[in-house]
Design a protein around this nucleic acid. Structure first.
Lengths: 195, 195
DNA sequence: GTCTTAACTGAGCGCTCACTCAGTTTTTTA
DNA sequence: TAAAAAACTGAGTGAGCGCTCAGTTAAGAC
């Protein structure tokens, strides 16, 4: 039963980084949680910073894959219906990848992005991915008439931000996302149709 | 020229905490930045955690004061106009208290809030303050007819979240807040009037 | 001027933590 | 099955950190 401690380390690190933060998570904790020696962590990931970057890289790849899958599979009638569906998709995704989204909502990654181009690239890719989804749906809606005259990109950013904010409030324990779900859909519909 | 290093320490700590985070900011850096000895920091604030809490406490008091001042001074014609004005007010406030808002957008404070009731109370007070502002304007608008039938509290949360998201995107260098300002106003107007 | 109190200093201490490395165990290769 | 490669171990190390404390300097009281 040697081998494959790598995966376990990665999973433990995701949990700990998202719950406690980068600096506050210690190699000894990851070690204890996985049963792997600290040396093993270094053996696989070189150092703590690189472990963090590896997690972010995999997360980005996952998101992009989900995005591609969604775009292929889902064929909804109108662009407006698609926007609403993407809101649900996003909230469900956040639910099933809770810890990694928590990581995304931490500020830390953005601090690191200032120093490291790799961090920056990954973060931008993730956000762009989501905004692109909304933008695409808005453009479709403008064509099929379900969405009025709005600037697609900017409106996509606004709506994505609105949804993400609710998610963040939920994460921070300030307001419950579930009770705001209907308002979220209502608000997006109004933003898109009044034009 | 003795005395009043306290203020300097507070200002330096705000800058450093918001730029680098709690754990990543070292007493030695605050010391170097202010010219005060590390012992002086401890003399005034007991320890690092308490220094952080002091900053948050002062910030909350500032916000509440600004809120009270705004509510007394500003008398706009309609509730809808008031909502739009609050959006500007919020963005201006964030601009003039940039570092403290950055602190608010860090996740750290919320992690600490889980352990410390004091942190939690301050954070909730700050958010509640802003949501209250929006809610009050929405209720006024519903009475004067400028705003349609919407659930005031929930809609206030949604709009506040939307505005705060744009601010955060700006902070992270993802999208520019200035170019989204018009869309922000347009979106809020649509959310509030279509009902 | 003298005494008291508050503000301030910085070398030093104890501790934590990321990372090293020489060695062991398992898996793969031939 | 023997040799080579890969995976893994954990005591040890050294750098860095928050905080202490005995002492110094300045401000205010009388």
């Amino acid at each position: 039963m040697k081998k494959n401690k790598k995966e376990a380390i990665l999973n433990a690190a995701i949990k700990l980084f998202s719950a406690k933060g980068f600096k506050e998570t210690h190699m000894s904790e990851i070690s204890k949680m996985t049963g792997a020696a600290e040396g093993t962590i270094v053996y696989h990931f070189k150092n703590k910073e690189n472990l963090f970057l590896t997690i972010l890289t995999e997360f980005q790849e996952n998101i992009v894959a989900e995005f591609a899958r969604y775009n292929k599979e889902k064929k909804l009638k109108t662009g407006l219906a698609m926007v609403e569906d993407i809101i649900s998709f996003y909230l469900q995704l956040a639910n099933s990848m809770e810890d990694r989204f928590l990581l995304l909502h931490r500020h830390e990654a953005y601090v690191r992005a200032h120093a490291s181009a790799a961090f920056r690239t990954h973060l931008e890719a993730i956000y762009t991915c989501f905004v692109d989804m909304f933008e695409r749906a808005i453009n479709l809606g403008k064509k099929d008439g379900s969405i009025g005259v709005v600037p697609a990109r900017k409106t996509a950013i606004i709506i994505f931000g609105m949804v993400d904010a609710v998610l963040r409030f939920n994460t921070y324990g300030l307001y419950n996302a579930g009770t705001l779900f209907n308002e979220l859909n209502l608000a997006s519909r109004r933003i898109l149709t009044a034009g």
